[in-house]
Design a protein around this nucleic acid. Structure first.
Lengths: 246, 246
DNA sequence: GACAACTCTCGAACGCTGTGCGAGCGGGTT
DNA sequence: AACCCGCTCGCACAGCGTTCGAGAGTTGTC
């Protein structure tokens, strides 16, 4: 009946440390930490989430696994840092008189691209709250867009959350799907062939789904088809928001 | 340089086994398997995703950890089965002359409820493609709704995917957030207090975000506030879809 | 030049994980 | 009595995240 360790996010813990003046990290620590995070992302991108272990990362960095703990307290912290690093890639056009709809569309595509480029990202996002500096900055810029458009605070929150939820929801699924095929070592055709009997059996008494599946097999769900579907949904969301703009 | 094991989903593998006539599972196997999956879900719901280990599950079932492997090939398979079991709880009203908009809203709330009831679900959904029988049946029923409303195959696919993406995107985030607070062992107030300095520091030079945060602190983001936000976004999505209906 | 302090590395070890293997048990059929 | 079959499980293995403490290398101070 021992109490749980009560994990605290990097951001929270390090903000608390910063309050005590003497606890600053050493000068050379910062570049090394960034370097570790970059290496971790490289492994995550090329070998997948499950391939990232501290020993593997240490080997890539040419150091012992346990040396990493000098720069980073946890693997959890490391992943939080990787998440926020990825969020840094996301662009939000702000200012310059672009209207909210175009700005939001640009943001949505940018967020999607980040999620597709880093298939591990969506899996981790569903793990713990993300309040890193880049994530906050992204939210602030999105808030700015709708603040400039005249929404009140509650509607800004609602609107921004809706857009992000849709993009993460669909892109996470798309990225996972693509990643599953890619890392299976099979071609797209081999993969669908392997899954054909299971799908056919599962849809045996589901005529509507089967009809859609049959009709939509050519062209297969390659990138452009996924992109068209993403754009369709995004237009739906934006139209719905447009109906609520002042 | 050994090749990866090439994991195949339960559904695919067992559909292939079913093709060979003699490979059916024994009669008593089925109830026991369902019982194992139910026990796994119980652990997942009450203790979280990380708490589910084969030994822990075996202990709960009063059997050795390795005995479970008689009924289930993998932990991965077990989780796939748990996912589909959870999908079985989702209701899709079909037939009976309800219009598509109300039917979709009922479905969306039902899906959300399942995701909130099983906080582990969203985390796992971003892990591998979900083609279990309950998931397929759910998709088929959603397809039926929009087929009856007169959409063509492509638009049915696009529309259903959009709704599901939004619901999973927002509910996954909400469930994770709530779960993080709950399992921290802190009250809501204690938790926000603990995160206050980090958020304040992070938002130091983000005035818009800070303004929203300040203004929206009372009432705190309890269940009803999250529900209002969910409904707002759902209305946006449904409005956008409505504009594309024949 | 000497000694202390501080930054950083790392091998050993702990307790945990998923899982393969093979021995063994009880009941049913031949 | 012999045999098979459904099922259980102890043992073992490789790998995981993480702790600890010993030590190396650099820097700072007298």
């Amino acid at each position: 009946m021992t109490a749980k360790p009560q994990y605290i996010s990097v951001w929270v813990r390090e903000a608390a440390e910063r309050a005590r003046p003497a606890a600053e990290k050493p000068g050379r620590g910062q570049p090394s930490r960034a370097q570790i995070v970059r290496a971790a992302i490289e492994i995550l991108d090329t070998e997948g989430l499950d391939a990232l272990s501290m020993r593997r990362l240490g080997a890539k960095l040419g150091m012992g696994a346990t040396s990493i703990y000098w720069y980073v307290a946890n693997k959890t912290d490391l992943l939080d840092l990787a998440i926020d690093e990825a969020f840094g890639e996301i662009a939000v056009p702000v200012g310059g008189g672009i209207d909210w709809r175009e700005a939001t569309a640009v943001f949505a595509h940018s967020l999607r691209r980040a999620l597709m480029r880093h298939p591990w990202l969506a899996r981790l996002l569903g793990g713990r709250p993300n309040i890193g500096p880049n994530a906050l900055r992204m939210s602030d810029r999105m808030a700015t867009i709708f603040d400039d458009a005249g929404l009140d605070h509650e509607d800004i929150d609602f609107t921004v959350t809706t857009v992000i939820a849709y993009v993460i929801g669909i892109s996470g699924a798309d990225a996972t799907w693509r990643d599953t095929v890619n890392t299976s070592g099979l071609t797209y055709d081999e993969w669908t062939e392997q899954h054909e009997p299971a799908l056919r059996a599962g849809m045996a008494d589901l005529p509507r789904l089967r009809a859609i599946y049959e009709k939509r097999r050519l062209p297969p769900d390659t990138g452009s088809a996924l992109e068209a579907r993403f754009d369709f949904g995004l237009r739906c969301v934006l139209d719905g928001i447009a109906g609520r703009m002042p």
